[in-house]
Simulated scan of single mutants.
Amino acid sequence: MISVHPAKSDEWKTYRDMRLRALLDSPDAFGSTHEAESTKTDAMWSARIAAAASSGKDRVLFAFNRDDACGLIWCKLSSDEPAVADLFQMWIDPASRGMGAGRALLNEAVSWAESVGVNRVRLGVTAGDTPAMRLYAACGFRPDGALEPLREHSHLTVQPMSLALGPVGPTD
């Protein structure tokens, strides 16, 4: 049974451990690296989650498979475009893939974005015919812009994608 809930300030260790596992498991899916993130102190991890939990502009979500944290997504209101939310750090533990955790995290992230008045949700996904790309497309995300480099010194590219929220146009 998959459930989703927002991260609380005192769950920074769960966030840290999941983020580091994600970077090891799927290094080609993220702009950051395990090498860069693993040097952060516990105080930095704690402060990151505390700031997100209290900001009102960030929403960190965990997916759980029964009692075990198995997925992560970070939602952030854009500072440049107030009607836009960006999704980052989406990852599902390999043992829980195919159980609906990714879709549950996306649904909860989009619901949060709608609840705070956002009209568009953006994300970037490593370009290719991958399970992540197929999930985002199945959830209504569409390519939105040119391919971009994943990070410096990488041959991989990222496809920006977005999902329009709310009324799309006339209904008659």
Score class of each variant (00 low, 15 high):
V168S: 15
A36L: 13
S46N: 12
E152N: 13
A50H: 09
V168L: 15
I49K: 07
A69Q: 08
E152Q: 12
V4H: 05
D28Q: 09
H153D: 15
R21W: 13
S32K: 04
G140Q: 02
G145Y: 06
F30M: 05
A137V: 04
R66W: 12
S78F: 04
F64A: 01
A47E: 10
P131L: 04
S111R: 13
G56L: 04
W45F: 08
G31D: 10
L23N: 01
A69N: 03
D172H: 15
E108Q: 09
I92T: 03
K76S: 15
A101D: 10
T14Q: 09
V118T: 14
T33A: 12
A83T: 15
C139L: 09
R97S: 00
Q89R: 11
V158D: 11
R134T: 08
A95Y: 13
I2C: 11
Y15G: 01
R21D: 15
C70P: 07
G166C: 06
G100D: 10
W12C: 00
K57D: 14
L23Q: 01
R21P: 12
S38K: 10
H155D: 15
K13T: 13
E37L: 07
G169P: 06
D25I: 06
W45Y: 10
R120L: 07
A69C: 11
E148V: 01
A52C: 14
L105T: 02
G98D: 03
L156N: 12
A47S: 12
M133A: 14
G56K: 00
T130S: 08
V125F: 06
L20N: 02
D58R: 12
S115R: 06
G169I: 06
A137C: 08
H153G: 12
S3I: 06
S115Q: 08
V158S: 03
T33K: 03
Q89N: 15
W12I: 02
A132H: 05
T126N: 10
D28M: 06
T41R: 01
V125T: 07
A109S: 06
W45R: 02
S9Q: 07
A113G: 09
A7R: 07
V118P: 05
V121N: 06
W74A: 15
A53E: 00
D172N: 14
W112A: 07
H34S: 08
M90Y: 04
A164V: 09
L24A: 10
Q89K: 13
E148D: 03
A50M: 10
Q159C: 03
F141C: 06
T14Y: 02
A138H: 13
S96F: 12
L24Q: 14
T157L: 09
D17V: 02
P27A: 01
G166E: 04
L150G: 03
L123C: 04
M44T: 15
